[in-house]
């Protein structure tokens, strides 16, 4: 009797469960899992003389990943991502702190003003930086007008310019989780700390920082990882002098036309992502807070 009931319940739940979960399951398996597995498979494939992918097993692509030219670019890409994350924290933390704890009536407006620029296409905003920093750009015009320089200064196409563009593109992904974690802070704790005689600095280091560390971690993940792939930023602002791993991959799928090599290069990004996410979870990071 009991098992018949269980069976009935199972049956009555199967259809609704399939209707609800079926589409997302199909979507994730067909468009995420299988394509990624196929990238792994393709990294072992060869190309023929017409650059077509042929299923002939080779480890050549993986061996090429260790060439010195590539190693240099991985290092450069990691350095750019590290600096970008660092600047995003250094600018984003005090900024988020100030707008999350302001008593101003316009708090919501201040928050929206962070998001509004990001409704304009990111490419055209990055191009805006190029216009601003170029030898005929606004900045040089202003500097020459003020007689601070006689010759236009070449700001563009340096690693620093690429970092600037990356910080610009990615800083909201740092500010938003920080804002959320700082806003959640219990003011009573801060008052208790100062009532107990703690200095502002030690309250910050021992109460505020540990309680908002989650925001820093999730922000750092959301800044560091995309930074490795944002090839268009280094294309527009770096002018080929500050390639990231994304540039290497993009080239193999476009002009280089060696898809298996591009696939092998993508494996590096997949591995770095896995490693960092594992690290994030180890440090107590919550996966859900990455999705916002």
């Amino acid at each position: 009797m009991k098992s018949a009931h269980a069976k009935h319940e199972w049956k009555s739940n199967t259809l609704p469960a399939m209707v609800m979960v079926g589409p997302v399951t199909l979507c994730m398996i067909l468009l995420v899992a299988i394509p990624l597995i196929y990238v792994g498979v393709m990294s072992f494939c060869s190309i023929d003389q017409y650059y077509n992918v042929v299923f002939k097993f080779t480890t050549q692509n993986h061996l090429r990943l260790f060439s010195t030219d590539y190693l240099k670019i991985y290092g450069q890409s990691l350095a750019i991502a590290f600096l970008t994350t660092l600047f995003c924290i250094l600018i984003g933390y005090p900024f988020s702190y100030l707008i999350a704890r302001t008593k101003s009536k316009r708090k919501k407006l201040l928050y929206m003003l962070v998001i509004i620029p990001f409704w304009t296409n990111s490419l055209i905003r990055i191009y805006g930086w190029r216009t601003f920093l170029g030898t005929n750009g606004w900045l040089n015009t202003a500097l020459q007008f003020l007689h601070l320089t006689s010759e236009p200064i070449d700001f563009l196409f340096k690693q620093g310019t690429t970092v600037l563009g990356m910080v610009y593109c990615l800083i909201p992904f740092m500010i938003l989780p920080l804002y959320t974690s700082i806003e959640k802070l219990d003011t009573n704790l801060l008052e208790a700390s100062s009532d107990l005689g703690a200095k502002k600095i030690s309250t910050f280091l021992e109460v505020v920082l540990p309680l908002t560390a989650g925001g820093i971690f999730s922000g750092s993940i959301m800044v560091f990882i995309p930074c490795l792939g944002y090839f268009f930023v280094s294309d527009i602002l770096g002018g080929g002098n500050s390639d990231v791993i994304g540039n290497l991959i993009e080239r193999q799928f476009q002009s280089g036309n060696n898809w298996p090599l591009g696939a092998a290069l993508s494996i590096i990004l997949i591995l770095i992502t896995l490693l960092l996410v594992k690290l994030y979870q180890k440090m107590g990071g919550d996966m859900e807070s990455l999705g916002m």
Partner: peptide, 15 residues
């Protein structure tokens, strides 16, 4: 959500 967009892009392209 976490993987660099370029990886998702090329994996969809290949499939």
């Amino acid at each position: 959500v976490v993987i660099p967009e370029i990886v998702l892009g090329i994996s969809l392209l290949t499939i």
